[in-house]
């Protein structure tokens, strides 16, 4: 059996928000008791509507947010063990940041506009003190070639605003990959790009998975994209994962009403295809989840197809 690159158990992230000066603080359960694992070299799609908690999940896993509850274990290539992300000492933290990288939806946000492409891509090497300046420059050129920015000399001294959206996203990928991470979390990395560029970036990422064994947590709201990229898909709704299954299994035999709704809303590039109409009131799903308990573990209905149990009681 393949080792897992990450194991997440009962992870929650709550935010305290105040709606007005005199009102009591309320709690937003952005991520609410989710569990999943990703085998090495595989990718898991995390799909769901905006606001369902995808980005918060990603930010919590990469330690940009502190989790509220639960456990996260990540594979450490040095020790060959899954290790908790809690209480990492400085060295362990460094190793963690080397193994796990994040690519954001808007690459512009994650870049310093006053840095050249060379400096942007090289920074992780500087932080980790890897190689001589010459070696670092070679590594930058090499990775720019890998992501299709050729010849690299044409890009080294340019600034982010001088590039197209697709080129900037490639720079972001180069920056994430220069550390040869084992695990990359991608938050809607292609949603702002034209279809044409989208495929070349997705293919690039698939190629890296094949050649370098990189695993992905691939966040998107588009199931068609998730199908192309991912071995398995987890469907998220209001902070909870309601269904996880192997990609084709999920698309063929969706069980949770929310998954069905999501599938029925994807436009199909075939004018003769009649989409199934599956209208459902989201508040209804939410109240059923509340009523039937959201704190029970998911169950396997066969073929490693997991669904949230509130659903078995309430809706099937």
């Amino acid at each position: 059996m393949k080792k897992n690159i990450i194991e997440v158990k009962n992870l929650s992230k709550y935010f305290e928000v105040s709606r007005g000066i005199f009102q009591k603080k309320s709690i937003v359960k952005a991520v609410d008791d989710i569990s999943f694992f990703i085998p090495q070299g595989e990718s898991l799609g995390l799909v769901g509507q905006s606001g369902c908690g995808k980005t918060t999940t990603a930010r919590t896993l990469t330690l940009l947010e502190e989790k509220t509850k639960g456990s996260v274990n990540v594979y450490n290539s040095k020790t060959n063990l899954l290790e908790s992300i809690d209480n990492l000492d400085e060295d362990q933290l460094k190793e963690f940041r080397r193994n796990i990288q994040m690519i954001f939806q808007d690459p512009y946000e994650a870049m310093n506009p006053r840095w050249t492409i060379k400096d942007t891509v090289k920074e992780p090497l500087l932080i980790h003190n890897l190689g001589s300046p010459e070696e670092q420059e070679e590594a930058v050129k090499e990775i720019l070639k890998t992501v299709g920015l050729t010849p690299p000399e044409n890009y080294l001294n340019r600034y982010p605003h001088e590039l197209s959206g697709g080129q900037r996203q490639r720079v972001a990928i180069a920056r994430a990959l220069i550390m040869k991470p084992k695990f990359v979390i991608c938050d809607e990395p292609t949603s702002m790009l034209d279809v044409s560029i989208r495929i070349s970036i997705m293919d690039l990422m698939l190629e890296l998975a094949r050649d370098l064994g990189v695993s992905y947590l691939y966040i998107t709201h588009d199931l068609a994209v998730a199908r192309y990229m991912c071995n398995r898909i987890a469907v998220m709704f209001n902070g909870k994962i309601v269904e996880i299954a192997e990609t084709e299994e999920l698309l063929k035999n969706p069980v949770h009403p929310y998954t069905k709704r999501l599938i029925s809303s994807i436009p199909v590039p075939d004018p003769t295809y009649e989409r199934k109409v599956y209208d459902i009131n989201f508040d209804e799903i939410d109240s059923l989840i509340e009523k039937h308990g959201s704190d029970k573990p998911m169950i396997d209905i066969g073929n490693e197809h997991y669904i949230a149990t509130h659903d078995v009681k309430g809706l099937i």
Partner: peptide, 13 residues
């Protein structure tokens, strides 16, 4: 990309 039919390799433009 599509969610129906056989999964096929896409061609980049």
């Amino acid at each position: 990309p599509s969610i129906i039919g056989d999964k096929k390799m896409l061609k980049s433009l």
